[in-house]
Design a binder for these strands. Structure first.
Length: 183
DNA sequence: AGGATGATATCC
DNA sequence: GATATCATCCTC
């Protein structure tokens, strides 16, 4: 199982988001080996995107977001959950793709239909923030399956505060997949 | 509709 | 130092 290379992430964020659908998110450590098929994602385009954390500028929290592509950006949300992102596009853009849902493939015992749930089910937390997706404990591998014949585009979830950016169709999911958080 | 629960940004 | 706000999920 070979990881997707950094060049995969160093492209237009919408393209990366769509191509992540059907690929495999992996978390591999000494004590666990989880694999989930990505079925739902959201694109956050950069510091000009008012729904993106990077729109607040460079802060300690967004340091990873503004770094080079191909790294994990993980943050704690609502004090309880974690969200897993992959950084895209060249350094300083502040773009990323949020992994919103996966379909369990191996080593997953709990529900994975939502960004907080999938992180809990796959043991993803702040410890992997900033990890290199090519060589670190978390990464993405090609499933070998063909590109999905159809992808659904919807507005992103939970970003109503972002004005016109809230209406942009930047959420993508595989139609009919039972693990999608909000079909 | 509302609570859990803590980091973060943004004020004083 | 205080406070408002979360890229959520669960229960009522």
């Amino acid at each position: 199982m070979t990881r997707l290379p950094r060049s995969f992430y160093n492209r237009d964020t919408v393209t990366v988001a769509r191509e992540l659908l059907g690929k495999l998110l992996v978390h591999e450590t000494d004590s666990l080996n989880c694999v989930g098929r990505i079925v739902e994602v959201e694109a956050y385009l950069g510091s000009h995107d008012r729904a993106a954390h990077s729109s607040k500028g460079l802060t300690p929290r967004t340091r990873i977001l503004f770094g080079p592509p191909g790294y994990a950006y993980v943050y704690r949300i609502y004090g309880i959950h974690h969200c897993m992102n992959v950084v895209t596009e060249p350094e300083c853009i502040g773009a990323a793709v949020l992994i919103r849902a996966v379909e369990p493939v191996a080593g997953i015992l709990r529900r994975t239909c939502g960004p907080g749930l999938l992180c809990a089910a796959m043991g993803i937390d702040l410890r992997v923030n900033g990890c290199d997706l090519e060589t670190g404990p978390v990464g993405v591998v090609d499933s070998g399956e063909p590109a999905p014949p159809r992808v659904v585009r919807r507005p992103r979830i939970g970003v109503e505060y972002a004005g016109s950016w809230a209406r942009r169709l930047l959420r993508f999911y595989l139609p009919g997949n039972p693990h999608v958080s909000r079909p």
